[in-house]
Design a protein around this nucleic acid. Sequence first.
RNA 1: GCGCUCGUGGCUCAAUUGGAUAGAGCAACAGACUUCGGAUCUGUAGGUUAUAGGUUCGACUCCUAUCGAGCGUGCCA
Length: 528
Amino acid sequence: MKQSVLNTIQKHLEGDFALEKPKDLSFGHYATPVAFSLAKIHRKSPILIAEELAQKFAQEDIFTKVDALKGYLNFKLSDDFLDQKTTQAILDENNFAKGKKDQKILLEYVSANPTGPLHIGHARGAVFGDTLYKVGKHLGYDITAEYYVNDAGNQIDLLGLSIYLAGRDKFTDHEVKWPDEFYRGEYIYDLACEAKEHFGSDIYEDENNISVLSTWGKDKMLELIRQNLADANITFDTFVSEKELFSKWEETLKALKEHDAVYEKDGKTWLKSTQKGDEKDRVVVREDGRPTYLAGDIIYHNEKFKRGYDHYINIWGADHHGYIARVKASIDFLGFDSDKLEVILSQMVALLKGGEPYKMSKRAGNFILMSDVVEEVGAEALRFIFLTKKSDTHLEFDVDMLKKEDSSNPIYYIQYAHARINQIFEKSGKTPNQVVQVKLEDLDEDSQNLLFTALLLPEVLEDSFESRQLQKLTDYLKSLSALYHQFYNKHKIVGSKNEDKLLKLSAMVAVSLRTGLKLMGIEAKYKM
RNA sequence: GCGCUCGUGGCUCAAUUGGAUAGAGCAACAGACUUCGGAUCUGUAGGUUAUAGGUUCGACUCCUAUCGAGCGUGCCA
C-alpha cells in the first residue's frame, strides 16, 4: 500500500522524501514534510511549495484528496483503492503482507552454553531472534536460524566435575571438597541421579570418569535446551559445534598470520585488535598452546563468512558487548567486510516476584528457569511480553503479573478482538467468502479508519524488521484491537443495513490480527 | 578510572529514527449490559521528557558537561 503511494508521488516529485503517517488520521492517510526541505533549496515558503505540489497530485486515481496544511502535504486514499487491497487480502490470506527480497541472512541467537537449562535472560534473546526470523521469512528474506554450541572449553570440564562431585556427595561415603568454581543448582543433582541410573554408582569412585560425565552431561543439557526452546515454539535450522570447528584451527591461524593479524609475545599468540579500534590486543593462544575462547569465535566467524551470506545478525546478551570489537577486528583481518555483521544486544531481564527483586546468576544456580516461566504463564504470554519491549532496554517484570489472566495481560485483549470477529460471523450466519465481493464505499469515518489501520500490517512488518524493533508489531496489534473494540461498542454490525460491508471490514481486521500473531509464534483464538 | 547501554506521568512501556497538540496499558476516580460476549467501552486526573547549556525553521531524539542506574573492563565462557 505504502509502495503504491510512493510510486505515484514519485511520478511528480524528484529526489528523496519521507512518507509518514500523520499523527491524526483526519489529516489524511499519508503525509510528507518534503516542502520544508525544498523550501531551503528554492528559498521559498514551505507553505507555498506544499500548495503547488498538492495541485499536481489532485489528478491521481488512488487519492481522493491531496491538500496542503501548514507546509505538510496530506494524502487521502480512495475507497476504490482500499477496497481492492482488502478483497485481495481476504481471498489470499496466506500471501497477505508477503514480500520478495534477494538478501541472504544468517541469524544467530541464543547460543547458550550447554552447561545448564535456559534461564529467563536467554529466553528474551531466543524469543526476539525467533520472531525476527519468522517476520524476515514472511517478508521474503532467505534467512537461516543458527545456534552456536560452545561444547569445547573449561565450562564443559566444569560441568563434568560438578556432576561428579554432586554424585560423590549424594551416592558415596566420601567427603567432598568443593572447589571455588563449580555449577550449583538442583539440576546438577538431577543429572548426577540420572548418571547413576545410566552408568551405575561406581562412576563416582574414580576421577578419571569426569571426562565421560562432561560429554554425557553436555549432550543431556543440549537436549534439554532444545526442549526448552521447542516448548516456546522456537526451532533452529542449524546447530554449529565449536568442538568440531576446532579441526579448522590450524588453517584459520595460518590465515591470520598471512594477513599479519597476530604476533608472538611472552610465548603467547596475540591478535592485533588495537589496530581495528579495540581497547587492547587479545590473546588467542595461551603459553601452554591451548587456544582461548576468542579463537573459537574467530574460526566460527571465518567459516560463517566463507559461507557467503549478504548479511549476518548475532543476537548476544548485553554482557557480551565488550566482545564486539575483537570479533569484528578478526573478521576484518581475515579479509571480510565486518560491516556485514550486525550485533543486536539483548539487555538484562530483571525479574520480580511479589515485588522482591531476583538477582540472576548462572553460576550460583538461583536463576529463574525459562521452562518454569513457560509452564506458569504459557509460551504465548511470555513471547508477547518480551516482544512488547525494545531489546536494548532493561526490562523488569513481575512473574505474578504475568500469571494473571485478565486485561492487564495484553495478549488477551488481542485474542478477544479476534474471537469477537469470529463470534459476529457466527451470529450473522455468513462466512468471509460470502461478503468479500461487496464493494467498500461510502463508509463512515470510523469504518474508514479501521479499514486503513487493518491494511497497514505489511508496512508495519517491514518497519519492524528493518529497524529490528519488534515492539512495533505488538503495538500495532494492540492498537488495531483497541480500534476494533471501540468500533464494536459504537456500531451494531449484525442486522444493520451495512451488514455485509461491516462484515467484510471485520474479516480484514481478523486477517491482520491472525497474520501478526502467527508471526509472533502465537495462535489466534476463535473462541475463548 | 575507562568503555558500552540507558534515564519519558505513581508503575511498566511507546513516540513514524530530527517533524504537527509527547501517546497506550496498569493503578486511582466517575460512568455504560431489556442491544452482535462487560476478558469490552466512555470519561476525569496525572508531564519543565534526570539536570544545565548548545546546534536549527523544528529536539524525547543530535553535540557537550553534570547527576543517576545496569553491564563490561580474564590468558572464564
